[in-house]
Simulated assay, not measured.
Amino acid sequence: MSLALVTMSHSPLLEFNDPPAEVKAEVDAAFEQARSFVRDYDPTLVVAFAPDHYNGFFYDLMPPFCIGYEALGVGDYGTAEGPLDVPTELSERLAQHVIDHDVDVAISRRMELDHGAVQPLEILFGGIATVPTIPVFVNGVAKPFTSMRRVRLLGEAVGSFLATLDERVLVIGSGGLSHDPPVPQWATADEQARKLLLDGRHPTAAARDARQQRVIDAGKAFAAGTSPIRDLNPEWDRALMETLASGDLGPVDAMVPAEMAEAAGNSAHEVRTWVAAFGALGAAGPYEVGTRYYRPIREYIAGFGVMTAKTL
């Protein structure tokens, strides 16, 4: 048994808004380093912690955590549609283990995944069904938010299960870092937006295109300095990455949701996937971080980071 990890920012704007050429080259190089790390590790199983952006999970029923027994990509922003290769029996055992370790988790026999989960699989593996993958949804967008301590405990419960398997497990954490894209908030949303937040499943192609174009335009405005959305916070991002690399996740327990949003934007809650992933890695034993990349990229509306790590 061994565990390895890749945590990475995602952005729906990767294929739509171009940063300066040298920045794009940096990001491509960071992705290639991560791909090389994964190729060398050659995982037999992937556990992917990922958020959602009101494409698969909605306010008609919004769990803090959910383990997928079956899953498919919805195809937003040009990402892959269709089923993942989910080892259902293993997912069922994982869910029972997590519950037995006092972390309540929902399950889904038809989890729908957007770019937040799909993009890293495409970047690292070239597809969404190349390696058996268990998706674990971690709410990073919809209030109320569970404590960061509970997120850490979720990761540790998952990791303690993975440590019992005769597999080479790659744990992925997808999201963040600091960013505040134009995702509607229930408290301030108008009636039309609330309908989307409540149940916006399976929109028409025209409705999806219009929604996506608003985000693309917001990214262009943010890069041009004409958007009112909250700025990126590189200091906050780097401090979190340093904590995760240290092997001592205790400090994340003190992170407060309202303060996270104030410091790093409403979608900074996606770093919960990084915390869960590092919690899983740490539960399997001491680990060492390999590569680390970070840059605030306004064109992607993201403090953009990539990290790799492996148990010793």
Rank of each mutant, 00 (worst) to 15 (best):
L3E: 05
L5P: 13
V27C: 03
V27P: 05
D28Y: 12
R35E: 13
D40C: 01
P43V: 01
T44L: 05
P51S: 14
G56F: 09
G56H: 14
D60W: 06
L61V: 00
M62A: 00
P63I: 09
P64F: 00
A80Y: 00
P83R: 12
E92L: 05
I99Q: 11
H101I: 00
V103F: 03
R109P: 03
R109A: 15
R109G: 12
I123A: 03
I123D: 05
I128W: 02
I128M: 10
P132S: 08
F137L: 10
T146W: 09
S147A: 12
S147V: 05
V151D: 09
L154H: 01
E156P: 04
A157D: 10
S160H: 04
E167H: 10
R168I: 07
V171Y: 03
H179L: 02
Q185V: 13
Q192W: 07
L198D: 08
P203F: 07
T204A: 04
A206C: 04
R214M: 08
A218S: 11
A224K: 15
A224D: 11
D231K: 14
M241T: 01
A254C: 04
M255V: 11
V256N: 07
N266F: 13
N266Y: 13
R272S: 10
G279M: 13
Y287D: 00
V289E: 13
A302Y: 01
